[in-house]
């Protein structure tokens, strides 16, 4: 039996598969990771982590509610490649859980998912996905590799403020003159698929984009989520003139930005939206 059918059955089966003990012992982070893994394994238990009566979907291509999630997965049965889900980093910030995942889900993808929990159950979901061809970037990094060690939990708020300011000052272009204050010299590990390490790598990428007439614009920050040395910025802008959702994950070391992973997704035109929840409404 295919995974999708299993999951669909789980959706229909309401609360039968829940193990109340497990519901209480698992952290929100573990539940989120398990739910994503269920796409690969067909683990029906994980479906129980979602609030079946109230699940607000922000992925514009998936219908609202748990049924919508199930229907999206049903499509997997027709897809030739077996789904694979490997969450490489995950952290909690209040009721939110952020997961960074190496997917093969209708083809290989890099993705960030954000889940919001209420009373131990998932009630809301946002994500940003992009196809990824497996090629390392000019400095040999992938969108997934690099440091995974989480630390500096006492610096979460300071690091979130730093990233918010960086996005405003530099990416939104409000104070580009502050650029170098955010970095420890040229030390900046870059996981963007087409940019090399360092501020010089960023400079070269900007120059090439300018040469091709491509503009990368950030207009608004929707959400900053963080835990210790990792901070995710959810922003919106335009890339080459197309409305774009940016998910940028930064690793902060000693008050400076040290490493960066990102996923960019073109925002589908309104005519294709499956609901009116908004891609980035928090």
């Amino acid at each position: 039996m295919s995974i999708a059918v299993c999951l669909l059955a789980a959706c229909g089966g309401k609360k039968n598969n829940q193990n109340p003990e497990e519901m209480n012992t698992l952290t929100n982070k573990e539940k989120a990771v398990a739910l994503l893994k269920a796409i690969e394994t067909g683990d029906t238990v994980a479906i129980g982590y979602v609030n079946a009566e109230n699940y607000k979907q922000h992925n514009l291509g998936v219908e609202d509610g748990l049924d919508g999630f199930g229907r999206a997965l049903a499509g997997l049965a027709d897809f030739p490649e077996k789904a694979k889900v490997n969450t490489v980093r995950a952290f909690e910030d209040g009721d939110y859980v952020v997961c960074q995942t190496d997917y093969n889900f209708f083809g290989p993808k890099a993705g960030f998912d954000i889940f919001r929990f209420e009373d131990g159950k998932i009630v809301e979901h946002w994500d940003n996905l992009m196809p990824y061809n497996g090629q390392p970037n000019p400095s040999g990094h992938t969108p997934f590799d690099g440091t995974t060690e989480m630390k500096d939990l006492d610096k979460t708020e300071a690091n979130k403020a730093l990233v918010r300011n960086f996005v405003q000052d530099v990416l939104m272009g409000q104070h580009p003159e502050n650029l170098t204050h955010y970095f420890d010299g040229n030390n900046y590990i870059q996981h963007n698929v087409s940019i090399a390490d360092g501020l010089d790598g960023l400079g070269a990428a900007l120059a090439e984009m300018a040469e091709q007439g491509i503009k990368m614009e950030y207009f608004t920050i929707h959400k900053i989520l963080g835990s210790g040395n990792f901070v995710l910025a959810v922003s919106e802008g335009a890339f080459a003139g197309k409305p774009t959702s940016y998910y940028d994950l930064f690793r902060v070391e000693n008050g400076k930005i040290a490493e960066h992973w990102d996923v960019m997704e073109t925002i589908a035109p309104e005519s294709e939206w499956k609901h009116q929840n908004g891609k980035s409404n928090f």
Binding site: V170, G173, L179, G203
Partner: peptide, 13 residues
């Protein structure tokens, strides 16, 4: 390098 990138960001914005 920082100044070069600042110039690029200013040109882009």
């Amino acid at each position: 390098v920082g100044l070069f990138v600042e110039i690029q960001i200013e040109i882009a914005n």
